[in-house]
């Protein structure tokens, strides 16, 4: 399973401790299904791919189980105290935090919450699944550890006052 919406098994494996590769691959498939369902599907193309992921689920995934669990996860995210879009909402620490009071996973999220990153971006940055990271961020928003970043933090433009692309100094011409 490889998707721009959620980290694949290759990304999850180094962060999963001693878990077996196949367990991680199955988790990546489940997380990918959640990523698709949580986003918007514009079009769908079925194609033959010659790329075989380096980590895959040998027996495939049971579609019924996949859909049931995805529906449960969507419901879970929608019913959180602070529902957030894993793709659109970008988060930033709400205040100065004493990092020793946080769990390692929360500390990692705080470190990557620059205000430019969404839950999806943070999931890739920390190498954890989209669903667990989304749920954790939602809880942290509820506990006022994080807040939704203002647009000027999410998109911060600097400019250099270049007036024109034309030659900046009139070249000396021999008379």
């Amino acid at each position: 399973m490889e998707s721009p919406g959620s980290p694949g098994a290759k990304e999850l494996l180094p962060h999963s401790g001693s878990a077996e590769a196949q367990v991680v691959a199955a988790a990546a498939v489940q997380d990918g299904a959640f990523a698709i369902a949580a986003g918007a599907v514009e079009r769908c193309v079925l194609g033959e791919s010659i790329d075989v992921p380096s980590l895959f689920v040998p027996d495939g995934a049971d579609p019924d189980l996949l859909l049931t669990e995805t529906a449960r996860r969507l419901d879970a995210v929608a019913s959180l105290a602070f529902p957030l879009s894993p793709y659109r909402d970008r988060v930033v620490p709400a205040r100065e935090l004493e990092s020793s009071t946080l769990t390692a996973k929360r500390r990692e999220i705080i470190e990557h919450a620059t205000g430019r990153r969404s839950a999806r971006d943070i999931a890739f940055a920390v190498g954890r699944g989209l669903y667990p990271v989304t749920v954790e961020i939602s809880r942290m928003l509820g506990e006022e550890l994080l807040e939704i970043a203002p647009p000027e933090t999410s998109f911060s433009f600097s400019q250099w006052g270049l007036g024109s692309l034309l030659p900046r100094v009139e070249p000396d011409r021999p008379s």
Partner: peptide, 10 residues
């Protein structure tokens, strides 16, 4: 290589 406008992380 002279920048004109940028939207980048710190």
């Amino acid at each position: 290589g002279i920048p004109i406008i940028a939207d980048v992380a710190k």
